[in-house]
């Protein structure tokens, strides 16, 4: 047998060759891309680097959790966007979990009518793109009546084309907060918390869409608990509610938590759809920044970095929780 053919017959040698080829390929493609990018940037007269973050942004942002004016820097504008992304994701996760759990449990309830209704909801929502649903929600919110004819479904809650106004807490007095009820004054509301139409539409869309997926996860989790467990609990004299709370849910959580984590991540990753209806989240702000400065590479890298951090952080949190509910086998 020839030397080379013998070498090729060795699995280790072949492995080394393949790996060397992959490394070479990655370096070659990467280098080619970097070289092209640098040439193109030079041609367009765009300086690389994150220096633009310190420059004045010069554009306004419609809603912000922290004080912001167009005179602030790009860095602060991006921070405003990031906070908006975090806010919508956090609220979306909370509401979707509540509704999704309720629907999932309801779908398994002995009540035929409720189970069917929840089934229709899940199938209808899961099979239609989220962006389409967002357009509908946004359309519905903006065609609501004006502030003076606002819908008033609950005391202190007003729905109008100015958005959703809910009671807020007033901390300005010091010490205990006072409930701050919104009132109509002139053509708009004063007091309370105002959620913009964009925010309200995005929150409704994300919540309703994700809740349908969470409902299926909860249902699968509950179904994974062997029937004997329920029968045993009932035989011990536990009520239906106690059985669900003390026996079924703790075991179902083990099956539920891992896919639930990926749904939570989906909420954050779906929140940039905000850009389609004009809610200033991180991706929307960074897009404006790209259009103004041309610093596409840096902005995209920044957004990617932030989303990777959010993903990793949320995964770590959910993994910690998963460890707590996981089965401890001795």
């Amino acid at each position: 047998m020839g030397g080379l053919a013998g070498l090729w017959g060795s699995r280790r040698f072949r492995g080394l060759v393949y790996q060397a080829l992959v490394i070479g390929g990655v370096i070659a493609v990467g280098g080619w891309l970097v070289r092209n990018t640098l040439t193109n940037l030079e041609l367009r007269g765009i300086a690389t680097g994150f220096g633009f973050l310190g420059r004045e942004a010069g554009f306004d942002i419609s809603e912000s959790l922290i004080p912001y004016t167009p005179a602030d820097t790009y860095a602060r504008a991006l921070l405003v966007g990031l906070l908006n992304t975090l806010l919508i994701s956090a609220l979306g996760i909370v509401f979707a979990t509540l509704i999704g759990t309720a629907v999932g449990v309801m779908r398994l309830s002995g009540n035929w009518l409720m189970a069917r209704l929840c089934g229709v909801y899940v199938e209808a929502v899961r099979n239609v793109p989220l962006l389409l649903q967002l357009f509908v929600w946004y359309g519905l919110v903006t065609t609501l009546p004006g502030a003076r004819q606002a819908l008033n479904p609950l005391p202190g809650v007003f729905l109008s084309n100015r958005g959703l106004v809910i009671p807020g807490l007033d901390w300005s007095g010091g010490g205990w907060p006072v409930l701050d009820l919104p009132r109509l004054a002139g053509f708009n509301f004063t007091g309370g918390l105002t959620l913009s139409p964009e925010f309200a539409a995005l929150l409704a869309g994300l919540t309703v869409y994700t809740a349908a997926f969470i409902a299926e996860i909860v249902r699968a989790g509950i179904l994974s608990v062997p029937k004997g467990q329920v029968e045993a609990a009932r035989a011990l004299g536990l009520s239906k509610g106690q059985t669900l709370r003390l026996v079924v849910l703790p075991q179902a959580l083990r099956v539920i938590v891992p896919p639930l984590t990926s749904q939570y991540l989906n909420v954050t990753k779906n929140s940039p759809l905000a850009i389609a209806i004009g809610y200033p989240d991180l991706v929307a702000v960074s897009n404006t920044a790209i259009n103004q400065t041309g610093q596409a590479v840096e902005s995209v890298a920044l957004v990617m970095g932030v989303f990777l951090c959010i993903s990793l952080g949320l995964s770590a949190l959910m993994n910690w929780y998963n460890k707590r509910v996981a089965l401890v086998s001795k």
Binding site: K269, N270, S271, I275, V283, V300, V303, F307, S311, L312
Partner: peptide
Amino acid sequence: RGLPLVSLLFM
């Protein structure tokens, strides 16, 4: 998998 599809499409 850590990235939103929207930003990938923008990229």
